[in-house]
Amino acid sequence: MARIVGVHGVGKQRLGSNTLLKDWEPALADGLERAGGPALVRGDLHVAFYGDLFRPPGHTLAVGDPLYTAEDVEDGIETELLMEWWADCARTDPGVPPPGADTLARSPRAVQTALRVLQHSRFFADVSLRALVLDLKQVRRYLLDEGLRKAARARVEEAIGPDTRVVVAHSLGSVIAYEALCARRDHRVRALVTVGSPLGMRMIYERLLPEPGGWPGDASTLRWTNVVDEGDVVAAVRDLSLFFGTGVRGKAVHNGSHAHDATLYLTARETGEAVAQGLAEEPA
């Protein structure tokens, strides 16, 4: 089994483990090199893939994703998450107006306004409307669709073997990785490295299984490092120690205009250091 398991984020439904590995492997190798860590060799990294669980059945590659619009954003988690993204975009982007009293009511008009504002923000400038709505739906489906949640978590649990020492998880993947490690109490992972993680957002934190706030392993042996870019709207709550305890070490990086990009997180020295420390730790 691989010494390092990567877990991807949302929007990868038409890719696969090998496709992602082509991007993740050289990026993480650069991060380790910048940190003065060990060289990454072929077979060290495996990307646990769950994105196909979100791919609509019966569709050919030509059809692609559903043509979602503002009317498809559902009340509850999807709208709450959208509004949180808007508020955080306004905090980090001077060109984004903050939500006003007339839009905090989470009405259909507020949803339309939020989507329009976000598409003109620096963070979501390259994201299409349907992709933005699809991301909301993938988060909601993971949290509320029990069958999909079990299947996604099983993909990660199966990838973590007796030789796995590090789990690096991006975006929604950090939620899945956290739950998988909590479920597999016998794992021998020595470092959890979350990057661009939404684990501290209320609508996600309160729905974590088996329960919010638990430590995903043996507290005496597992190191948890959370790497975040200040401009990453998806990681709106930057300090995870507020929710999971002071054992979570927070590291700030600068990814430029693509704050949430997984490969930019992986090339960061801070990520490389956290991975190198996990590889150096010998299991008891």
Rank of each mutant, 00 (worst) to 15 (best):
V47D: 06
S121H: 05
D23C: 04
V133M: 13
K150H: 11
W85R: 07
R140P: 02
V47W: 03
E80Y: 00
D52F: 13
L132A: 12
A70M: 04
Y68L: 12
A110H: 12
L148Q: 11
R149N: 12
A101C: 01
A27P: 03
C89I: 11
E157H: 09
V117C: 00
E80W: 00
L129T: 10
V47S: 09
L129R: 13
G16P: 07
E78D: 06
D93S: 02
G16Q: 04
E25G: 07
L115C: 04
L118E: 02
G37H: 02
C89K: 04
T113Q: 14
F124H: 10
F54I: 05
T19K: 10
T60Y: 05
P57L: 13
V96F: 00
L132M: 15
T60N: 07
R109K: 13
Y68D: 06
N18Y: 11
T103L: 14
A105H: 01
G76Y: 08
A87N: 00
D135K: 04
A101L: 12
D75W: 05
S121E: 06
P57A: 14
P108S: 08
V63W: 13
E33H: 05
A90F: 04
G31Q: 08
T92S: 09
L67E: 13
V111F: 09
G43R: 01
G147S: 12
E158R: 15
T79I: 01
S17G: 02
S128L: 10
A35E: 05
V133Y: 12
P98Q: 02
R55K: 11
R91G: 01
A35K: 06
R55A: 15
D135G: 10
A90K: 06
Q13P: 00
R149V: 11
E33K: 09
V139G: 10
R116C: 13
M83L: 11
S107I: 01
Q112R: 08
S107T: 15
R14E: 06
D44E: 14
T103W: 11
L144G: 05
A152D: 00
L115W: 03
L82I: 12
P97I: 05
A62E: 02
A101N: 05
P98D: 03
R155F: 01
